[in-house]
Design a protein around this nucleic acid. Sequence first.
RNA 1: GCCGGGAUGGCGGAACCGGUAGACGCAACGGACUUAAAAUCCGUUGGGGGAGGUUCCCCCGUGCGGGUUCGAGUCCCGCUCCCGGCACCA
Length: 897
Amino acid sequence: MRRGEPTQWARPLLALGGEMEKYNPHAIEPKWQRYWQETGLMKAKEEGKKYYVLEMFPYPSGDLHMGHLKNYTMGDALARFLRMQGYSVLHPMGWDAFGLPAENAALKFGLHPREWTYQNIERAKTSLNLMGILYDWDREVTTCEPDYYRWNQWFFIKMYERGLVYRAKAEVNWCPKCQTVLANEQVIDGRCWRHEDTLVEKKELEQWYLRITAYAERLLRDLDKLERWPERVKAMQRAWIGRSEGAEIDFKVKDHPGKAIRVFTTRPDTLFGATFMVLAPEHPLVTEITSPDRAEAVRAYIEATRKKSEIERQVEDREKTGVFTGAYAINPATQEAIPIYIADYVLMGYGTGAIMAVPAHDQRDFEFAKKYDLPIRLVIRPESGELAEPLTKAFEGAGVMVNSGQFDGLPSEEGKKKVIAWLEAEGIGKGTVNYRLRDWLISRQRYWGTPIPMVHCERCGVVPVPEEELPVRLPEIKDVEQIRPKGKSPLEAHPEFIETTCPKCGGPARRDPDTMDTFVDSSWYYLRYADPKNARLPFSRQQADFWMPVDQYIGGIEHAVLHLLYSRFFTKVLYDMGLVGVDEPFEGLFTQGMVLGWTDYGPVEVEGERVVLSEEARLRLELEVRELSLDTLKKMGAELKPGEDGKMHFWKPAVMSKSLGNGVMVGPFVKEQGADIARVTILFAAPPESDMVWTEEGVSGAWRFLNRVWRRFQEDRNELAEVAPDFDPDGLEAKERELWRALNAAIKKVTEDTREFHFNTAIAALMELLNALYDYRKTRPVTSVYKRALMDFLRLLAPFAPHIAEELWRIFDDASVFLAGWPEYDESALKVDTVEIVVQVNGRVRGRIQVSAEASPDEVKAAARAHKNVQRFLEGKEIVKEVYVPGKILNLVVRSQ
RNA sequence: GCCGGGAUGGCGGAACCGGUAGACGCAACGGACUUAAAAUCCGUUGGGGGAGGUUCCCCCGUGCGGGUUCGAGUCCCGCUCCCGGCACCA
């Protein structure tokens, strides 16, 4: 029965009579967890061949569920595997401890954000330990500690000195829920990245920026170096950086001598077709050039634009609107006066905030021209054929230039270059590259973050805090009310913090009241792990050089253009500063799928083929309709199952989350089932990169597998003591040889699959080997090969189910299985005496023959022709071709005689 | 619209470089054990058909339509649908 109650997966452990010990994870797991910590199994040492395994560090949110643990489980399996292979492994963990939830919780419970954070860290750590996930805790990094955030401040000042930090007044994104500004990357579809339901507002504020745009080209270009990154993450970063090549062209404004408007275009070849110009309503020149008779209309339009949300402005297929400013620009190619409009389809945030409109060759301009009856001039014709005029839509493709004076007849690609050369010669434009990427706004009007180490002095202006005075500590709070967001920085309310003296002139000055975006914290934490206790520097070059880059980074896709872009930027800056020797932080990136849980969406009534949703179910599913067909239900991946009340409910897998209440919590699960079972369930259910549904059936499968492992060893325990695992592979009898081959095949498969992150197939290979071990023991006694196979099996199992492997390893050895090395396979053992050759006639399987592995092609062909069923298909035919793939297949191509 | 990734049994998924499609697991069914159930063990399981003493044979089958090849889940061309990202970006 699949039920909602928390004991759904409770199941009694194997109860067998007699002297055999039953598999009891609860009895063995805590013991080994303590043992690994005490013996320092995962202590990283700077010696030998290094491998840096890292999972994205979490925001500490307390008790963890299986959805949180997937990437840590994978990282742990990989780290243990590499450790056994003899690598010097760095596998650290830390906490992205600054941020809003701590403040919100503080306000809700009247608890200091620090206390709340540290309580959560303790609980999260407990969950990780319960799962047997091992870290080098000596390297733990917690970003809310002054020892850590002082280096955020240090980097900020260093970047300031290099011109990479600046303060600017601009229209910024404001989240009314967070009560703070956000960076561009943190606005998703016009909404706050933390609050899907909250539209971001625009505010004009003076804020701190990091000049990430200075690195746009390198951030884009170096993506090509990242061979072990998923294509889609690279695609997302490329799209975000948004490079486009074109030209900037100055258009003089008629009757405004000396005034010019610069536009950006990717199609300089269409310059002769520019019949009007459009400015973004926010463009700074708008008020200057607007003629008095148009002033009122222009003012009204600007006002209307400002009221529209970003969302409204971005809706596709919205009818173009705009107003004429009364001013004219001079097309530098044709010398024609062309009207200047303002329209909200031109955005101030891209290019120069102004465009030359070429209605014949840009669909947006075309629509605008149609609506306002502006001239449409064809300046590109297709390579072949003619365009029928009047046009019904813009021709945006490449072609040949026409109506373009001296450029007529040039192919448009070549024309672009020629027009740019002409513009440059005339001094009225130049070829440029434009990026969509904007500078990173890092000021936040919140308490729980890194104070910005800047001082505002009336006499000296903005002055950085001297290095030796770092860290600038957050002021202590006496009352949580002091951190309540009021639309400006809570730190403003702390005079003992704000009021200071100017480092330059010693006069009275004020500290900057904002804190940094927490993405600054996570942009370099992986470097701190290399040297976490350094009090002199963020990390030593030497230690960083030993461990960097991160060889395998594991995390969610949601950070594709947030954390992963910021971290690449930071690493490049640090590289330029000579602090690290690598300019890319993460050599390999793996984005894991999510964990879904079966979720009860509420009761339904079934009426024949139709399912009538209750109000509760309809609301929770966010559906408009009241009923569904059984077919639709199936397509949604949903099922009808009883809920806790015994009535029919609508169930569907959904991402595990606190709000849906569908998370399988680590603590209770491990207590009732065990950590190894949880680990195998997670790793076996689906390929690691895909989403997996956590099911009771999956748990049963893992439980049965580990139980079978346990029993195999327990049943043979006594006999195993009697034999040594040494033998001559050439002296084995048939059944032994088969087992020996199966063992070596498994070693090969598990080794390769684990290295390539195919944990599901690695575990499948272990299951196959276990089946072979059972099969062998049906008819044969405990022998040396068998013992060897059992020992190697445990070593192969250890990364995935470490506790049971460590426990059973004690049958053979007093030392840890993780110090026993990784088994190597013997290629010669994979050979078989006889092979099965598939015999095809005209590509269709007609028989299988057993031949010696050394059989010559002629022998195989003879044997194939002798095969009874094959003969049937050869009868009366002539063999015209024989294709033989040694050891695999023989295809006889025949034709009727 | 553009970009990226997919589509294989009842289900999750395997299949190296083009060479036995469906590994491994789940579910289901049949049997053994048991007073009974659970657990465990053994067997069957892509669809259809045929012969039959263990077993064997034929046809169809990897989203759809073509192609290349002795041979295609895999390569090529043209589609459909699904998931994700971007999207008035000049």
